[in-house]
Write a protein that binds this DNA or RNA. Structure first.
Lengths: 344, 344
DNA sequence: TTGTATGCGTTATCAG
DNA sequence: CTGATAACGCATACAA
């Protein structure tokens, strides 16, 4: 096996001091004379000492680790959020255990459990769960371990600590933009509306229609997984629609651009025949032809704000004020070529 | 403060058995009778017992945690790699601490140190370091903690455990494709060539030129960070070039598509006037107009294979065979409209 | 300014 | 099949 690791006891022995002194010296405890401190540091280096964070965490019940659960980490939006989180966490002396739930409530539960067992100092989650009040965060609440929700927030925890945007308003604006351009038959392609964000975007869509005195047609709302694959399928289906829609509000850019691409392949003129609006402001939404109008959902800011809220909670654990809701500003990025006449 | 947590001692006391028995029962030790095992499990649930993985790790020196260091996690390629890693790791009972080095050697060093201190069972790294033989992995080697390099591999560790593609061959093929289409003035826009992957792609570029009896012009190789910003700058600069290049081999898709977009904005016909080749096969490379020819670098596979190699090492630690190099297959995705005559 | 003693929660060894 | 006990490596209350 590998040789035993060097501990504070080893360096204490080598220097004829106590382990306590070594422990203190190594963490710059003020009560240690500069002389012994330097001596200890030097010896520690010499012996290749590496502190054991596990032991330290066990002793202090502070792991300096934050748990993150997301549906999947490889979307442009989510990886941008995570990048922001990692940066902010690292700056604050924390690091991240990141886990994916793959849209499975069971997996999310397991992940929460594992993170709890590893004694994370806090949990940040974009939930995949469609149940209004998931139970698997209970142990965290019970032990007063801060939980911050971001992006996808369970219905019942919307008054809890969370960071998000006003999805209803965003859905409203995206739809309104299409209505303003004279579009009347607006298809809405979205995700699982059991998930709040999609439900709210749908509400915004409805509100815009209602405001414009357009009737809402449930047939014009398609639930998908918003993947590239789904985009292809949707495009195919759109081509068979009796009266063509003249616009589509898609709940993410990936799917929106895929649909645009395949409709164009079928000879459809975008935006003249069908105008498309996306969601997220992925970098490539700007580079598609035509550029895609979309909702700018600030991913990095979401990540940073989530971590900052977490840190704040960690530093004021005993007070425990009511949950804090951070609603970020989003932007409507209008980008199709506008030199076309509104059909009115 | 928060109340003490329930330990195996609490449940032992409640059941008049020893803590050892509880510990064994909870991990299905064969030497425990089914009866007491069930009794203990039930009590554990009842008391809301949650195992403390920290204590367990300290005792067993197995953290079931793998460290990951990447330059940044929010590129399509990298987040796809990480998604594959997380999946594979999770399936094998491990989880991931992911850290970003932001192209800083110092940060990479700090990250390695932190991960070491947290006693990760293994380290996976896409290095940012341009020094041929970075020293900060020494502690891992010394303690026989497996280190697997992926994507970006330090020069001196290329015989170590690593997972990558043949970047030289890929650079060769990308360039060759342009030459085959009759292009002669091929610009190469790449990253820091102190990093092996870019150095090797450049070598492939040179080899293709040499094979076609084209002379190599150092002026035609631009080092950038391959970002969207860099793409804009490059496009601007290209517009001022005396004889226009007739092709560009860009070392990633993000930058390639940005350049394409801005050249088109300036009225350049792609690919007639300038043909562009990217690298990575980001999803949107297919949806640009025209679709981008690119190198399909299998991200998810990279992640999975890296973790699998890691697990293999973890399970055969004592044998310690020589390093294992896994070279993944890449593909050249030819995608521009091909119905144009080669200029020959 | 430094040392002593103890505990964090678990698992492994050795007995019985 | 079960129990007692000693680590794992560190940090802290209490003494000195």
């Amino acid at each position: 096996m590998h040789k035993k690791e060097t501990t504070i006891y080893d360096i204490a022995a080598a220097l004829n001091v106590s382990a306590a002194t070594v422990s203190r010296a190594l963490k710059d405890h003020p009560a240690i004379s500069k002389k012994t401190r330097d001596k200890i540091r030097e010896k520690a280096n010499e012996m290749g000492y590496q502190t054991n964070a596990l032991a330290s965490s066990l002793r202090t019940s502070k792991s300096h680790t934050l748990g993150v659960i997301v549906p999947r980490l490889n979307s442009n939006f989510m990886s941008t959020v995570l990048a922001g989180m990692e940066k902010a966490a690292s700056d604050a002396g924390y690091h991240l255990i990141i886990m994916q739930s793959f849209e499975s409530e069971i997996k999310e539960k397991e992940n929460a459990q594992i993170l709890f067992n590893h004694r994370v100092d806090g949990l940040m989650v974009s939930t995949t769960d469609t149940s209004p009040e998931p139970t698997h965060f209970k142990p965290f609440f019970a032990k007063n371990i801060p939980v911050v929700f971001f992006d996808r927030i369970p219905e019942k925890y919307s008054q809890h600590n969370c960071v998000t945007i006003d999805n209803k308003e965003a859905g409203y604006q995206a739809t309104r933009h299409l209505l303003n351009n004279g579009k009347t038959r607006i298809l809405h392609i979205t995700g699982n509306t059991g998930i709040q964000v999609y439900k709210q975007r749908l509400e915004g869509y409805k509100e815009a229609l209602s405001e414009a005195n357009r009737s809402f047609d449930p047939q014009m709302v398609w639930q998908t997984n918003l993947s590239v694959e789904d985009g292809k399928v949707c495009a195919k289906r759109i081509m068979t629609m009796k009266p063509f829609p003249d616009a589509i509000f898609v709940a993410n850019d990936t799917c929106a651009i895929t649909i645009m691409h395949y409709l164009q392949k079928n000879g459809i003129k975008i935006p003249e025949q069908i105008e498309i609006t996306g969601f997220n402001n992925d970098p490539f939404s700007e580079f598609s032809k035509p550029s895609l109008t979309t909702i700018d959902y600030p991913g990095e800011e979401t990540g940073i704000k989530t971590v900052n809220l977490m840190i704040e909670k960690l530093n004021t654990k005993h007070v425990e004020p009511k949950g804090k809701q951070i609603v970020l500003k989003f932007g409507l990025r209008i980008r199709e070529s506008t030199n076309r006449k509104p059909v009115k």
